[in-house]
Nucleic acid binder design. Structure first.
Lengths: 240, 240
DNA sequence: CGGGGCTTTGAGGCAACTCAATTCAGGTGG
DNA sequence: CCACCTGAATTGAGTTGCCTCAAAGCCCCG
């Protein structure tokens, strides 16, 4: 498809969608122009600060979202306060649990983020009308499942050092700016959040980070900014 | 739908399907009679012994399966031999990764099992032709994702004792015979497999089992048979 | 009865946790 | 501009829960 032709196709869609990060993402990329218009009519762009809760665990949610910018963490907490991050989502991912209203987890902005919110009912209806959309969401669900299972291996069988290396590698390969070498990036998570993702304590995370720093695998600037001189070296620390 | 009418509908389907455990499962329950006939023509019922590998990690698989009887475990192993079970599937679940041929995990019969095997190509084609089937598989994928995330919480944040209780509870609530109280069952897993599921060692599993036994929460007969006098008591050991 | 696999039990060690103190960066007000 | 405060991160010391290694018990099966 050439550029001029693609321009023409863009005419019929909502203005706000034309330059949207999620325009060709899981949901919107699978819609016809008329469906996109309908969804656009009922959707709301929202800017949320880091830490803002988008969906609360145990609540009835009536809306889904697309991530336009930023990182969202999916969390589960136990009654006694223990907490585990069970997924990280980056733009332009879809956030929500089709077909089920009550949420078994919370979704929270890990960084400042922009999201596009729309009603569950509308999307659920579109899903049953548009096989293309069903397929696309099915595909994201399967990818999330693959990622969850990969992470189960990390949680169950890797050492603290390997866990931290795994997370840094995950973030490096999903970081947004797509720098040439994807060799330096800002951590979207605090040490406490990293601990919650890896199933360990803040202190152990910190110790393992300084171990990686002292062994020259990474450099750390200002706590949040990580530089990886050699990605292969980092990958080797994961031992798989 | 009354019984007589339902009988009539059953006439057009393959003989082998009529009394099949998976007949109304994720895949076959979503097919029309003619699709069921076509799938039946290309499918193969197989009896496999405990320990038999159905799909190998890293291999190109060209077939999917339905579980008709038994339990299948999904496994990931690291190059150095460390191993993690990332999912358990019971009859009449579907086993396979739609849309992707190379498997990132292995599927292995945990108990003696009967499975119904059919070609990927055929089902993939049916998926794109039958929205009902796509929806059904999408639904199973989302349920597996929910289960995987629940298990991530167990792996990352629960103690050894809570982990064992979680597994016993999981199996009790998924056990096949559906005994009146679902209060006693055979473990489909050896101690080594339980350890691989929970991310711990055989010895720790054993110690936690005897701790549960001595505190009266469970009784153990012949290593594999578990009796739970009071399910609420077991649930309380999970502490969530 | 004797061997082999699986499970349990015991003793000791180590990796990760807990508790506590210190450092660091950024913001605020004098 | 500096003193102070606050929250996050690091570092240290001591403890503990789970792992490792080793031995013994149990059950099936020939």
């Amino acid at each position: 498809m050439d550029v001029a032709h693609s321009r023409v196709l863009e005419v019929g869609i909502p203005v706000a969608c034309r330059s949207c990060q999620a325009r060709h993402g899981v949901v919107c990329g699978a819609l016809s122009n008329s469906q996109l218009r309908e969804l656009g009519r009922h959707s709301l762009r929202r800017t949320v600060g880091a830490g803002c809760e988008i969906i609360a665990q145990g609540s009835e949610s009536s809306s889904y979202s697309n991530i336009m910018r930023g990182v969202v963490k999916l969390c589960k907490v136990m009654p006694d306060g223990r907490q585990q991050i069970v997924g990280l989502q980056f733009a332009p991912d879809f956030v929500g649990r089709p077909f089920v209203r009550e949420s078994t987890l919370s979704a929270e902005a890990a960084t400042d983020a922009e999201i596009c919110v729309f009603p569950c009912n509308l999307l659920d209806r579109m899903i049953s009308e548009a096989p293309e959309l069903q397929r696309s969401l099915h595909d994201q669900a399967l990818k999330e499942l693959d990622a969850a299972r990969e992470w189960m291996l990390t949680l169950g069988r890797r050492t603290a050092g390997e866990k931290v290396a795994s997370l840094l590698y995950l973030i490096a390969t999903h970081a947004e700016p797509q720098t040439a070498t994807s060799t330096d990036f800002d951590l979207p998570l605090s040490r406490a959040e990293i601990a919650d993702f890896l199933g360990m304590t803040i202190e152990t995370v910190s110790r393992q980070m300084t171990r990686l720093r002292k062994s020259g695998v990474i450099r750390i600037e200002n706590f949040r900014h990580i530089i990886v001189p050699d990605m292969d070296e980092l990958e080797r620390m994961i031992s798989a």
